[in-house]
Each structure stands twice: as C-alpha cells, then as structure tokens.
Amino acid sequence: MQNIWLSDGMGQGRRQHNWKSHAALTGILLLAGCGSGRQSVLNPAGDDALMLFDLARVMFIGALILWLLVAALFIYVTRIAPREFSRCSAERLIVGGGVIFPVLLLGALLIYSLPLMSSQREADDGLEVQITAEQWWWRVNYVLPNGDTITSANELRLPVGARTGLRLNAHRVIHSFWVPALGGKTDMIPGRETFMSLKPETPGIYRGQCAEFCGASHALMAFEVVAMEPEAFAAWLAAEAADAVPPQTPLARKGAGVFAREGCGGCHTVRGTDAQGQVGPDLTHVGSRVSLGAGILPDGVEDFANWIAHTEDLKPEVAMPTYDYLSDGDLTALATYLEGLE
C-alpha cells in the first residue's frame, strides 16, 4: 500500500489524505464494534460491569491528563523555552514529578479501586449457580435456597435486579469465566473453587467467552447469558427443573429412536428417559437454549443436524464423535427430536 502511494507521483498530499481516511475508517469500525456490544465491556448491563466501566473511565481520563501534561512539559522545555536547569531545580523536578507525585497518584487510585474488587464478589441474594468448565463447554447447576439442584449446560439464565452467586470449578485445565457486559473475569481452576457474583440490570441476551487458553477449541468455548425479569426467570427455572417433554411427532419419535440406537445416552442426560450419561452436556431442555455447541451455532433443526454430522470440523478435538455416517433421514429425525426438547 505504502509503495503505491510513494510511486504514484502524487506526492505527500495524496499520502497524507490516504492516511487520514484510513484513520477515520478505522475509528468508525472501532466505534461500530463498540456499539453492538453483546460481548462488550463498553456496553455495561449489570452493576459490576458499570462499576468496572466507571473505573476504566477514571483510569483512562487520568492517564490522558497525565500524558498531556508530560507531553506539554516536554514541548515547553525543548521547543518553547529551552534553557539550562540548575541542578537543584532539575532534582526537584525528578524527585517531585518522578517519585512523590506518582506515589501519591498510584496510592489514591489504589484506595479508590480496592473496595471495588471485593464488591465484585459480594454474597448472593439466594440463588447460586455452580459452573464447571469442561473442554470446551460449561456444566451449569442452579442451586436453590432449599438445596435443590437443577442441571443445565452451556447457557446461564439470571434474574435482573438480584445478585446471583457463581461457584466456579474446572475439570482438567484452567479456564476463565467472563461475561464482559455483566462483570469481571474470574479464573476457573481444577481442584480449587473460585467465587464471583453478578447482578444484571438490563434484560437481554449477552455473550460470555472462556478467557483463558484451554486447548484446541478454546476460542469456540462460549455461552449465552439470558438476563430475565424475575417472574419470567422463576417460570423458566420451574420449566428447566421438569423432565424432558416426550417427542410429539412421528419424526421426533423416530429421532428419539436414533438417539437411543446410536448410544447418545452414554454421554448425555435427557431427564425422564434412559439417557443418563454424565460425560457431555445435559440435553433435557436443549431445544430451548439460545445457542448450540457452547455458543457457536444457533439453535435450529438444521444446526443440530450440522453439528452432529460435523462435530470435529466445527469444534476441533471435541470429545463428541462425528456422526457423518448417519443417513439424511436419521439425521433430520434426530435433529427434530433434539430441537423439540424444550
């Protein structure tokens, strides 16, 4: 690109114009990227994310002011009024500007930011969710105040206006739990439970992502977070606690047969059926989830078929085998059955 500018004979003006338009374009793209924000710290939708957003703004504005001061001082002493400093005033500048001022500034920022850290881990208002990171998906268990547990996977639903505690574990390697629009990031470490809590304020669907490299499909280890009004959440939780709905159509019934024949129940649980496997995600209500394959596909019949027939292509090194030998008929039936598990 640069060679073209230099060799096209239009000289400096053209080059500068191109540079400016490129910078403008980059700026627009960056801003556009920020605005859409389902997975953005710049689009805070919860208490904790708002707090972190404020913290980031304070730090950014502080850094900007500091940078402008240093740059202005630099220009002043080198361009506007260059002169020789006495040893004493030079030392005053170094000790004052290089030691005392930064120590006080960093101390003030530390005092301002430390209390924010513990508020990100406040106790919950009654609901607790245990999340265990697997390669490369999420085990999700809702623990009710009475001790009952409701098992789900690859999706987190939270009531708005209430603080939900998250007990985080990992199975084999270190992962990290992060929903940028709702709060900070917490590592998930095998053999060591970590805790954080989230308090969403705006209902909506946000995206979370594993934020610690955890193997071949780390980038494909995501999940959807649905923040719901408390009544809607309570209704959803009651439905999630129920057993799976039996297949309603002949095609879905055929799909249930394929599910049993292929041994899917060896790894997956569908509550209310013989399928009680614990290796892979719980599929009891998989048809009602927003996404499939831990946040990488939408949740339609074609997507189920696509996933089952191309698991290795869609998620390299995933434990689930690729069922590419299934006939189109069987595949469609199986996908219809799964999509119907609402």
Partner: peptide
C-alpha cells in the same frame, strides 16, 4: 527506607480496605 515505607503502606492497604476474604 523510603521504598520500604511505600511498600509497607501498599501491602497494608488491601487488608484495611477489603471487606471480605473474597
């Protein structure tokens, strides 16, 4: 001594300001 003084203050601040073990 100066660096030690700053170090002691910065080490103590989290415990004095944190409300919990979390």
């Amino acid at each position: 001594s100066i660096i030690s003084f700053i170090g002691v203050v910065y080490v103590a601040l989290p415990i004095l300001l944190f409300g919990s073990c979390q």
